[in-house]
């Protein structure tokens, strides 16, 4: 599937390090992946795995104290080497972003129509009436009824679902090539979640926008993703098509995660519990397999000394060799 598609963004050896008490710690550690044309690429992981830091790095939204290494190649240019002004012009125009919390993501003092218009003013030379028309078109596109009324509303006057549609309209305003959605439905009710996911997916298909969907929810992944990367402690531990991940998960972490959510298979059974806790940023052991200490019932020889993300099947990548020996039943018994 991936062979006949064009690479839209190619991320190589990307690291994002935060400064804590004078030292830098990598929250994103050597991440490499390609984002294909028009695909829905999900990045899934628990809090603290670095998925949001990765999203902000691609958008260039970290402040200056954050050290970013590696390259983000887009249209034959490395975004990471660009100066601030060049980078700014790409944001909102080529790359749009959808945030988690639609209420706080909007300026409380500005009418929502104006907030959408702001993007058009930055990146286009449209006349005022053209911009107003474009705003109304965008509201149509994100499925907002009574658009003439809604443009004049303030964020607090709209429901959570409507606000998120406004945030999506802002991200879409300049027909970007890439959309990064960071937990776009986490703050919403389930019935709204389904609608918003569908909307993001439909817009992707319609405009052939490559979308990176950041989430902690495997259900959201199962619903819309084409390809999935699973992150743990700053690294991608497994990456493959949606079917690879759900039907043939290989990395112990992916297998464990899938087993720990309540579903129709484990009803009335004990849920699988991953031993230990997610290490905090300063406490990540950066030598060897980062998941090793959370695997029980296996000896350390199953891990690689310097684990690499390898393509084990076509398009299916797994980090470390421990997947070959890992037996979840054995890990649970101990």
């Amino acid at each position: 599937m991936s062979k006949d598609r064009n690479v839209k963004v190619s991320i190589e050896n990307l690291s994002t390090a935060f400064e804590i008490m004078g030292s830098h710690y990598k929250a994103v550690d050597d991440v490499t992946f390609d984002l294909y044309d028009g695909e829905m690429f999900a990045i899934v992981g628990e809090s603290g795995c670095g998925k949001s830091a990765l999203a902000l790095s691609i958008m260039g939204l970290h402040d200056d104290s954050v050290k970013i290494e590696g390259s983000i190649n887009y249209k034959e240019k490395d975004l990471n080497k660009m100066n601030k002004e060049e980078r700014r012009k790409i944001r909102g125009f080529d790359f749009g972003m959808i945030f988690q919390e639609p209420l706080t993501a909007l300026n409380p003092l500005v009418r929502v129509g104006e907030q959408i218009k702001e993007v058009l003013s930055i990146h286009t030379s449209l006349s005022d009436s053209e911009k107003n028309n474009k705003v109304l078109d965008l509201l149509d596109e994100v499925g907002i009824p009574n658009k003439e009324v809604v443009v004049k509303k303030y964020p607090h006057e709209l429901s959570g679902g409507m606000r998120q549609r406004i945030v999506i309209a802002i991200a879409l305003a300049c027909d970007p090539d890439v959309i990064i959605a960071d937990e776009p439905t986490t703050a919403l009710d389930v019935t709204i979640q389904a609608q918003i996911l569908k909307l993001i997916d439909n817009l992707r298909i319609k405009q052939n926008t490559s979308t990176i969907l950041i989430t902690h929810d495997l259900g959201v992944v199962a619903e819309v993703a084409d390809r999935v990367a699973v992150m743990y402690a700053g690294q991608i531990v497994e990456m493959g098509t949606i079917d690879d991940i759900f039907d043939n998960p290989m990395h112990p972490y992916t297998i464990s995660l899938l087993r720990s959510i309540p579903n129709s298979d484990n009803n009335n059974k004990k849920l699988y519990v991953i031993d230990g806790i997610v290490p905090s940023l300063q406490n990540i052991d950066r030598t060897g397999c980062r998941f090793s200490e959370r695997i029980k019932g296996h000896d350390d020889s199953i891990h690689e000394e310097n684990p690499q993300l390898r393509e084990v099947e076509e398009g299916h990548f797994v980090r470390c060799t421990c997947y070959k020996e890992f037996d979840i039943e054995k890990s649970q018994e101990v």
């Binding site: 700014r88 944001r91 909102g92 125009f93 706080t104 993501a105 300026n107 930055i122 802002i170």
Partner: peptide
Amino acid sequence: KDYVKTARAKGQTENIIYNTH
């Protein structure tokens, strides 16, 4: 605040973000 991040994600210049938002 998050809306400042949104304004940055829109590609707004730092000066305008500061002076208006």
